[in-house]
Simulated scan of single mutants.
Amino acid sequence: MHKEEEIDTALIALLALLWEARQEAPEKPWSLAKLAKRTGVQMSTLLRQLNALSSAGLATVVTAESGGGSAFLSAAGAQLCASVFAPPPAE
Rank of each mutant, 00 (worst) to 15 (best):
S74V: 08
Q23K: 11
L15G: 04
T63W: 00
K34D: 12
A33N: 00
G57E: 07
R38D: 08
I7E: 15
C81L: 08
T63G: 00
G69M: 05
L17W: 03
H2W: 10
T39N: 09
V41N: 05
R48G: 06
L80R: 04
S54F: 11
T45C: 01
G40K: 13
R48W: 08
G67K: 01
S44W: 08
A52H: 12
G77K: 01
L80V: 09
R22D: 07
G69S: 03
V61K: 01
S70I: 06
S31Y: 06
L47A: 03
A36I: 13
L47W: 04
A56R: 11
L32D: 00
Q23N: 08
L32F: 02
A86H: 09
A86N: 05
G77F: 01
P29L: 03
A33Q: 05
L17F: 06
T63Q: 09
E27D: 14
A82V: 11
A76W: 05
W30P: 01
G77I: 00
A13Q: 15
T45I: 06
R22S: 08
A56E: 12
C81N: 06
F85H: 05
A64G: 08
A21Y: 04
E27P: 07
A36L: 10
I7Q: 15
T63A: 03
K34L: 08
A78C: 11
E65L: 14
L50I: 01
L47I: 08
T60I: 08
A75S: 13
G68I: 07
E5F: 13
E20T: 14
N51P: 00
P87G: 07
A76C: 02
G57W: 04
L58R: 01
L47V: 05
C81V: 07
G40V: 13
R38Y: 04
M1G: 14
A52D: 13
E91T: 06
R48S: 09
D8V: 14
A82N: 14
K3P: 14
E91G: 07
W19S: 07
P29H: 02
E5R: 13
M43E: 10
G69A: 04
A82P: 12
A33M: 01
G69L: 04
L46A: 01
L73K: 01
T9P: 04
A25D: 14
